[in-house]
Structure formats: structure tokens, C-alpha cells
Amino acid sequence: MNPQAIIDGLVSGSTIGLGAIGLTLTYSILRFANFTHGDFLAWGAYLTLTVAGVLGGLAAGLGAPVYPFSFGWGLPLAILGGVVLTVALALGLDRILFGRLRARGADTIIIVMASFGASMALRSLLEFIFTAKPAYFTKALQIAKPLGLGMRATPDQLLVIGLTLVLVLALHLVVTHSATGRAMRAVSENPGLAGVYGIDVGKVVRVTWIIGAGMACIAGVMAGLLVQIRPYMGFDLLLPLFAAAILGGIGSIPGAMLGGLIIGLVEAFAVQIVGAEWRAAISFVILVLVLMLRPQGIFGQRGA
């Protein structure tokens, strides 16, 4: 078996894990499976691309690649803008759709179906605005450098893995050691009691969207940087995202990340055995196995 699958798996697993963090947070705090989450990845990538284009128009030097990476300073700056816009999209959607349904006391299935519909609308809108033609953050080619043991990686790929680990660690520390994190865990366990404790549940919901959409945007940019940007890129990642969130244990940030890395690695190795055409089925198989054997996931608690 080719050891290169380890690097391939870690790279795709980083994107999946980062994306799954938002999914697991909305699932545990807002208590519904948010199908629009995949589209936040795609919108995040396109919005960042748009901001990068505007910045490139204002200062051409920002687009010039910075060695050893394939992109210039414009991209990190554009990510900041992309994150802000993706967060605004998520908060706006919550305000006009999910928040209203929650206020009416709608059943979870109604909210899930609403998210499914919103997901289709967001995807179609993306295709309408940007067309289905793939787009790219950079046209620069990168040569993968040898890492030893028969593995190779591009500087962009190593950056993606490193940035993911830093973000996940920072987020985990925020959730476990800050007042905001305690409030999020409290709302996740019992939103009614949270109010009695003096927690503003509406504020926690907004923070959840901010973190989830922000991470989705960065995950979308990573996927776009390493492969390409397409309107369906988020939809195609949706099943691995759900599989990672459930495998890691709903509500657990390290769990979502670990779940993402496991899915990425299993996909990468399985492709060598059963062929790339079965890649999409692998997440589904893992999802079914987890639900049958350990429904609470790796770090989840029973009944969570």
C-alpha cells in the first residue's frame, strides 16, 4: 500500500474535520442537522475568492505568490473578509429562517427540512452567480516535496494541516476554558436551564453560528486552494462532514477533528483498495457502522 495515502488522508481529513466542527456545534446547541453547512463551505470559498479579486484589483502585488506557497498575501487578507461575509450569511439565514422556526416551537424535522431547502437555494444561487465552471485561488503550480518514507506534500498541503491543528486547538481551549465555552456547553445540555442560570441563549446561538460559519469558510478555502472551487463542493462534502461529526461524538470539537482525520485517512487508503469511484460510499459505510456500534461516537456521552 502506498504510504502517500497518509498525507492525502490528513489533508482531506483536515478540511473535513474543520467543516465538521461547525456541524457538530449547531447539532449539539441548536439541536438540528444543518444541511446548509456544506453550502457555507462553498459560499465561504466563493466569497473569499471575490474579496481576493477585489483586493487584487486594488493592489496587484497582493496576488503574487509568497514562497514557498502558491498564493500571495491577498489570500490571508481575503479569508478575513470571507469569514465575515460567511458569518453574516449564517446569521442572516438564522434570523429569517431557523430563528423564526425555533421561536414558533417547530419540530426538529421541520427545521431539518427547512435547512435542506435552504441548502438547495444557496447552492443554486451560487451556481447562478458564479456559474458551474470551476474557479481557482491560484494558477501557480506546486511541486510536492519528499517528506521521507515514500511520502510527499506541497507547502500548501502542510500549511493546511498545520493551520487546522492550530485552529482546532485554539477553539478547544476557548470551549473548555472560557466563559463563552462554558455557556455553550451549558446550552448544549439544557437550554431551558441555561436561561435560569442567567445565560442569554440567543447570544450563545449567535456565537455558535459565528464559530461554525467561520470554520466552514476556512475549510472551504482550504478545499478550494488544494483542489478547486465549485458550487457543489460543499454538498459533496456533506456526508463526510456528518460522518466525522457523528464519529467524533456530537458536540465534541476534538471529536469532530479526529473524526475528520479518520474519515480522510480511511478514504485515502480505501481508494487504493476498492478504487476512487467508491470514495463517496466510504463515509456512508463509516456513518452506518458508527450509528450501529457506538452511536455516541468517540468522545460523545450516551444520551447526548
Binding site: R182, R185, L193, Y197, G198
Partner: peptide, 19 residues
């Protein structure tokens, strides 16, 4: 269900103290 069972005793008090 009048305490957060998945939080520590101290964290339960810290949440209330936040006000």
C-alpha cells in the same frame, strides 16, 4: 434537571457568577 450534569461543580458556579 436543575444543574448541568456534564459540567463540574465549579463550572456550574462559574456560569452563575458570570453575572
Amino acid at each position: 434537571e436543575n444543574i448541568f450534569t456534564r459540567l463540574s461543580i465549579l463550572e456550574n458556579l462559574q456560569i452563575a457568577a458570570q453575572l
